[in-house]
């Protein structure tokens, strides 16, 4: 445990001392404040608009930062050869990988809490109720972020940051639209050719493998103050954690076999 904690702490320090990270967060906060100006122009819909745009901004920035740092997590250690001094220490490779994961996961938690606090302060300023549904939505955004980090770490355990970045963004976009892809219609029954049938099977197989991230987006319920059941949130947490465990297991398997040339 001490080893995983050491790697996690170092990853956390690296991310929080990174100027790009700090400027991204400042930019996100600036965007939130800008939203305040825009929403005040809407007629009596300030709070709804603030909820909608606020959650969208927090979710998008969190996912982008996770991908940006996530695909570089392992690659940087190999590229800069810092990993050469870590692997010979009494640490298993999977512990190193878990340390990197938890390091970024805790960085993102702090980031999410910070941005949520800014949003809550804006709500307080508007004299609006932040509400239980906002907490639920933010919790689900964090679970989505945890999955995205695991996907980024999985791809980067065997490929370059650029390729890992593309693959992670691809998986994220497919994941967000899984529900729609599964009911997609390529052509009417009469026009269906074997080739189209194959495409359909391929797309559906991918959609089945990729985690369904649409379940973590509860913004429509929040905006219309339609409370979500906590059992739904807990199901989402269980679903997310299962995906994270599988992805980290596969990433460890790849990483253990790797040569650090």
């Amino acid at each position: 445990m001490s080893q995983i904690f050491a790697i996690a702490l170092n990853t956390f320090r690296e991310a929080t001392r990174n100027r790009v990270f700090a400027s991204l967060i400042l930019f996100a906060v600036a965007m939130l404040l800008l939203t305040l100006a825009v929403s005040s122009a809407s007629l009596h819909e300030e709070v709804r608009l603030m909820k909608d745009i606020g959650l969208f901004l927090i979710s998008t920035f969190s996912v982008l930062i996770s991908i940006f740092i996530g695909v570089n997590l392992v690659y940087k250690e190999i590229e800069r050869k810092t990993i050469f001094t870590i692997i010979p220490k009494p640490i298993f490779r999977f512990q190193f990988l878990l340390g990197k994961y938890f390091g970024l996961a805790s960085t993102m938690l702090i980031q999410l809490i910070f941005m949520s606090t800014v949003l809550a302060l804006i709500f307080w300023g508007l004299d609006a109720n932040f509400g239980e549904e906002m907490v639920q939505a933010l919790l689900l955004i964090y679970i989505e972020v945890l999955i995205v980090i695991a996907i980024a770490l999985f791809f980067s355990s065997f490929s370059t940051p650029f390729l890992s970045g593309l693959l992670t963004i691809g998986a994220f976009i497919i994941g967000r639209f899984v529900d729609r892809i599964l009911v997609i219609r390529l052509a009417s029954k009469d026009e269906m050719t074997p080739a189209l049938e194959n495409v359909k099977t391929f797309v559906k197989t991918i959609a089945h493998i990729v985690p369904d991230l649409s379940i973590f987006n509860t913004t429509p319920y929040v905006v219309y103050e339609d409370p979500i059941d906590w059992s739904y949130v807990l199901n989402g947490v269980g679903y997310g954690v299962t995906y994270v465990i599988i992805l980290l297991f596969l990433a460890s398997l790849m990483f253990t076999r790797r040569d650090f040339i």
Binding site: E14, K81, T82, F84, K89, P90
Partner: peptide, 30 residues
């Protein structure tokens, strides 16, 4: 490996750390 010390060729280290933090990080691994 707990009784092994290793210095690689042309080492590069975590540049954002200060010396005591740096050594503390490696000591934690033990």
């Amino acid at each position: 490996r707990a009784r092994l010390g290793f210095l690689p060729e042309h080492p590069y280290f975590y540049e954002y750390l200060k010396p005591l933090e740096f050594l503390d990080f490696y000591a934690r691994l033990f």
